[in-house]
């Protein structure tokens, strides 16, 4: 590029064998923003083609899961809910965890499920996982609205245990952490799975295990004190507990915990981008 000959044309693109360790080409991503948008639309449309209920499934899924949890963890296992109505408690946990886990799972499959298309055309590879994150965000927003309606119902009914706190203003931060954490962990797995397919079999189990290590089906306060400290190292703990504190007024919230989660997320994000960069260029030769 630095060749200073007079007749040297201005190159728009130089393909070389080396790539920098960390490369996030925002200009390029921006140029492909229409693709990002169309991918999101594709995910959305394709998931409801040939269904009768269509987007209503957005509500049914978390509702059913929350009901099942209420029966199993609430009624049978008799786990507490910090004095909150069971439905609200589980619903909040389920929609948050669903968002995080689908982000993780789908970005973990980036390379393998898109190998076909990646092998033929170049576009910023990051578009694929990011589009999934966004289309899941769409789903999460609808579910969140549903949660809001349920919350409003309980408040109007005069349920005194439930109250919204100022932490609700931090909701965008919670969502951002979940999205970035899911994306980063997914990308790391995805970068590893181009060579070691074994991890793909492990990931489903791993995510499930992580759910039980996160206060989704139980409040952190139910745990023995020692365990409570251990579980705080899980970056998702602060998100779910914080979210419950924000909207249900139960659970714990500490700014330092949230900062810790944010820090872990940023570190993982950088690691994932480095790994993604490394794999992105050569994966077609190994996948």
């Amino acid at each position: 590029m630095s060749d200073a000959r007079d007749n040297q044309p201005q190159w728009d693109l130089v393909i070389e064998s080396k790539t920098p360790l960390f490369r996030l080409n925002f200009r390029e991503l921006w140029r492909y923003r229409d693709l990002l948008f169309l991918m999101v639309m594709r995910d959305y449309k394709a998931s409801f083609k040939q269904t009768i209920l269509g987007p209503i499934w957005f509500f049914i899924q978390p509702l059913l899961t929350s009901t099942v949890y209420s029966v199993i963890f609430g009624m049978i296992a008799k786990l507490g809910t910090d004095g909150n109505p069971r439905l609200l408690f589980y619903l909040s946990g389920v929609i948050l965890w669903n968002y995080f886990s689908t982000c993780l799972n789908s970005s973990a499959n980036t390379f393998i499920s898109n190998a076909n298309i990646f092998g033929k055309v170049y576009f910023p590879r990051l578009i694929m996982p990011v589009s999934v994150i966004i289309s899941n965000m769409l789903r999460f927003s609808v579910q969140f609205l549903f949660f809001g309606l349920a919350l409003a119902y309980y408040i109007i009914q005069g349920n005194t245990a439930v109250h919204i706190t100022w932490v609700a203003l931090l909701t965008p931060v919670f969502i951002l952490i979940m999205a970035a954490l899911g994306l980063s962990m997914g990308l790391i797995v995805s970068s590893l799975t181009t060579k070691y397919r074994d991890l793909t079999h492990l990931i489903g189990f791993g995510v499930q295990l992580m759910m039980y290590a996160t206060p989704v089906v139980y409040p952190a306060s139910e745990l023995p004190l020692k365990w409570q400290q251990i579980i705080q190292y899980n970056p998702m703990t602060a998100v779910i507990e914080g979210f419950r504190y924000a909207f249900l007024g139960s659970g714990t919230f500490s700014p330092s915990m949230l900062l810790y989660s944010l820090g872990i997320t940023v570190v993982l994000f950088f690691i994932s981008v480095i790994m993604f960069n490394k794999v992105e260029k050569g994966f077609m030769d190994t996948v």
Binding site: W11, D12, V14, I15, E16, S17, G119, Y122, D285
Partner: peptide
């Protein structure tokens, strides 16, 4: 595949205008 950036060259450089 190299020209369309699907995979990376081992050595050398490809420069493109447009």
């Amino acid at each position: 595949k190299l020209l369309s950036q699907v995979t990376q060259p081992t050595t050398g450089r490809i420069s493109v205008r447009g």
